[in-house]
Measured scan of single mutants.
Amino acid sequence: MGFKLLSKLLVYLTASIMAIASPLAFSVDSSGEYPTVSEIPVGEVRLYQIADGVWSHIATQSFDGAVYPSNGLIVRDGDELLLIDTAWGAKNTAALLAEIEKQIGLPVTRAVSTHFHDDRVGGVDVLRAAGVATYASPSTRRLAEVEGNEIPTHSLEGLSSSGDAVRFGPVELFYPGAAHSTDNLIVYVPSASVLYGGCAIYELSRTSAGNVADADLAEWPTSIERIQQHYPEAQFVIPGHGLPGGLDLLKHTTNVVKAHTNRSVVE
């Protein structure tokens, strides 16, 4: 069995187990497998329904001669939608809004960016022009300005110390501490036991640490421990890039980060 097929099978099995364990909360999309990078042309966006009122959005972007996937989250909030992270750029984010209108038909009224990198804030200006209120932590807003990236308009308070959590509509926002970046936030959907790890969490097929220019490698494993301790009931975990899975993604990420750190020390 090929690795790609095995990865998709694991996603399907995880979703099936969740649907059985929580039949009222989960209505997993039966329309197909989780979209992969090879299936999404740059400039297009796919939506994948995880649970009743919960979707991931998947886009792709060219970077350094390669094409990478990027995940975000959409959560229903009454007759409105909360968006977590842009679709990595203005063109993708405009396509995301169009796809949401086509498939869901509810307005996106608020959006949260989970850290300051372009795959999370690139497209904020498109959201703002569409009347979406954009939010991020003060740290993310400051770092985005320093980096020359787009800056969300509103500040999220109460997320300055490791372990801080605040309720934001249908989700809980959690600051686990520094990891992929010093400002990275985690998003949890309690009604569906869905954990969105953003770039602080890796997919299972990833074996290298990737972009760690703004990471705190020493603190990252401790931050992941905080996530595990705060959300032990999480059933569906979405990484910032690639295929979702279960809580095993947290341990896998820790292993990859520690291996990278150990290699760096040896070198």
Rank of each mutant, 00 (worst) to 15 (best):
M1V: 06
K4A: 05
L6M: 13
S7R: 09
K8Q: 08
L9D: 13
Y12Q: 10
Y12M: 14
L13V: 15
A15L: 12
S16E: 08
I17M: 14
A21K: 15
L24E: 12
L24C: 08
A25D: 13
F26E: 15
S27E: 09
V28N: 12
V28S: 11
S31K: 10
S31Q: 09
S31C: 07
G32W: 10
Y34E: 08
T36R: 11
T36G: 12
T36Y: 14
V37K: 11
E39L: 11
I40C: 05
E44A: 12
L47N: 03
Y48V: 15
A51D: 10
D52G: 10
D52A: 11
I58Q: 06
T60P: 05
S62M: 09
F63E: 10
F63Q: 08
V67T: 15
Y68H: 08
L73F: 04
V75G: 02
G78I: 08
L81P: 02
I84Q: 00
I84M: 06
N92E: 03
L97F: 02
E101S: 12
G105Y: 08
L106S: 08
V112A: 06
F116K: 01
H117I: 00
D119Y: 03
D119S: 01
D119P: 01
D119L: 01
G122S: 09
D125K: 09
L127N: 00
A129T: 10
G131W: 05
A133E: 13
A133N: 11
S137G: 05
R141K: 13
R142K: 14
L143I: 09
E145K: 14
V146E: 14
E147M: 14
G148Q: 08
N149A: 12
N149T: 08
T153G: 10
T153C: 04
H154V: 08
E157H: 11
G158M: 07
L159F: 07
S161Q: 13
G163R: 05
D164Y: 06
F168S: 03
G169N: 03
P170D: 03
S181W: 03
L185F: 05
I186M: 06
S191A: 13
C199P: 03
A200S: 06
Y202K: 06
T207N: 15
S208M: 12
A209F: 08
G210K: 06
G210F: 03
G210Y: 02
N211Q: 12
L217F: 08
L217H: 05
S223T: 10
E225T: 10
E225A: 14
R226M: 08
I227P: 02
H230L: 09
Y231E: 02
V237N: 00
V237R: 02
I238G: 02
I238W: 03
P239N: 02
H241M: 01
G246L: 03
K251Q: 15
H252D: 03
V256Q: 05
K258E: 14
K258P: 05
H260A: 14
N262W: 09
N262G: 12
R263W: 10
V265E: 14
V266A: 14
E267G: 07
